[in-house]
């Protein structure tokens, strides 16, 4: 690894594909393990990517998860093609969800997804619009002594 970020994963996520839901997170976890990333950081990353991946499966028209790594940090990008988050502030409020009853019965839609992402990420940036979909960028520090 060097100062320049290298792409280590780019995986398509399909809308409502519960069969593959979690695969991108699982793939990234295996890659990070092989790269020797500390297990606490791998765990944190898995929580973040699983939430973001399932958001794409449940709420979007489809998207992709990309991971880049340098010596200092891990960058996760999750981009979807819409329909966008209507109220971003509410989306970051614990307990708020727009998921259907059917999705909630499966144990999703508790309104803890983005809350969990924010809790474990060192930096998070979310841009969302009806026209361009939702674009999440998360940074996880790799040089933190607590890792």
């Amino acid at each position: 690894m060097s100062l320049q970020k290298q792409q280590i994963l780019n995986k398509e996520i399909e809308s409502f594909d519960f069969q593959s839901g979690g695969e991108a997170s699982s793939n990234l976890k295996n890659i990070l393990r092989k790269l020797g990333v500390p297990s606490q950081t791998v765990r944190k990353t898995a929580i973040i990517t699983y939430e973001l991946e399932m958001n794409v499966v449940i709420h979007s028209l489809g998207g992709e998860l990309t991971a880049l790594i340098s010596e200092e940090e891990l960058e996760i990008r999750v981009d979807d093609s819409g329909p966008g988050i209507e109220d971003l502030d509410k989306a970051f409020t614990a307990g708020y969800s727009t998921a259907s009853d059917e999705i909630r019965e499966m144990g999703f839609g508790a309104g803890m997804g983005l809350v969990n992402v924010k809790r474990y990420a060192d930096q998070i940036d979310v841009k969302s619009s009806k026209e361009n979909g939702t674009h999440v960028k998360v940074i996880i520090n790799l040089t933190d002594s607590t890792n």
């Binding site: 069969q19 839901g21 979690g22 976890k29 898995a46 699983y50 399932m54 144990g107």
Partner: peptide, 16 residues
């Protein structure tokens, strides 16, 4: 211990 028996339970169990 859960009442959820669908396939994404497996994804979570695997990740954790």
């Amino acid at each position: 211990l859960t009442v959820q028996g669908h396939q994404n339970v497996v994804a979570v169990a695997l990740l954790v």
